[in-house]
């Protein structure tokens, strides 16, 4: 049996499924949202995105009873909508906020899976710390208005290319997932999800089997911390040198005057 007819047959199945059409609609909506110049086009894109979400939701399998399915769908919707909005938002601040929303959804997904610690950790570390840091940097760098490069995306050819690329990723994922659809039986909850001693077990596993990795990660964090500080200090020093010894402003910013900067700022 040659591989190509098989693959073609799979894609044939795929093309008939709502999943596929949902993906295509999603892609179309993203295209509209990215390259849409007018408000109306953006609204249209949002509508298309909603429809594609609906279609995707329709392909989801029943995870258990209806109540849990609804909860799951809600959490998943928050995640995906948040992600889509984060990607398409014109303002980077909104991007960050929508990303945080998406993270909350992810945390919900983790909790739904019984990975309580990860859910909490995601909220605390990601949504709480990292995204806030992003916002902080954004505010620091871009306190007013939004830049032209946020309003335009890459040139028109790049958007379809990206979409096609991402669609291909999805296609591969889904193709490989197809076999999972066939299995439809109720199985007992795995031990790691149903454990009442979740944290204890996770901790004991973590420190029993991944002790060295933990230490390495701790060191890595330390190094990253020192490195970040070093980079900023170094950068400030070199910026000061390249501007002909312009003194840093009290706010810690260097006035990028003169012609020493790449590209210049004028």
């Amino acid at each position: 049996m040659t591989p190509l007819p098989l693959l073609v047959g799979q894609f044939d199945d795929l093309l008939r499924s709502p999943l596929c059409w949902g993906m295509m609609l999603g892609a179309a909506s993203l295209w509209l949202l990215f390259s849409g110049r007018s408000h109306a086009l953006r609204v249209m894109g949002k509508v298309l995105g909603g429809i594609s979400l609906m279609m995707l939701a329709a392909t989801l399998m029943m995870v258990g009873d209806w109540s849990s399915q609804i909860v799951f769908c809600f959490v998943a919707a928050v995640t995906v909508v948040g992600a889509g909005a984060a990607v398409t938002a014109r303002s980077p601040v909104y991007t960050a906020i929508w990303f945080a929303v998406s993270l909350l959804g992810t945390a919900g997904l983790f909790l739904f899976q019984g990975a309580q610690f990860l859910g909490v950790a995601t909220v605390v570390v990601y949504a709480g710390a990292i995204v806030v840091t992003f916002l902080f940097v954004l505010m620091l760098a871009q306190p007013e208005g939004h830049a032209p490069y946020d309003r335009i995306s890459w040139a028109t050819f790049a958007v379809p290319a990206a979409l096609v690329g991402a669609a291909a990723v999805m296609a591969i994922v889904l193709t490989s997932l197809d076999s999972l659809r066939a299995v439809d039986e109720t199985t007992p909850t795995p031990a790691i999800a149903g454990s009442s001693q979740h944290m204890a077990e996770l901790g004991s596993h973590l420190f029993a089997y991944h002790l060295v990795a933990i230490e390495v990660v701790g060191t890595l964090l330390m190094v990253a911390l020192v490195g970040a500080i070093a980079i900023v200090l170094q950068g400030r020093k070199s910026a000061a040198e390249s501007t002909g010894g312009a003194a840093p402003l009290p706010g810690g910013r260097v006035v990028p005057g003169g012609g020493g900067l790449p590209g210049g700022t004028r």
């Binding site: 258990g64 997904l109 999972l180």
Partner: peptide, 10 residues
């Protein structure tokens, strides 16, 4: 719960 369904969705 349907574990494989869960996996599929996730």
């Amino acid at each position: 719960m349907n574990e494989s369904a869960m996996l599929y969705n996730y």
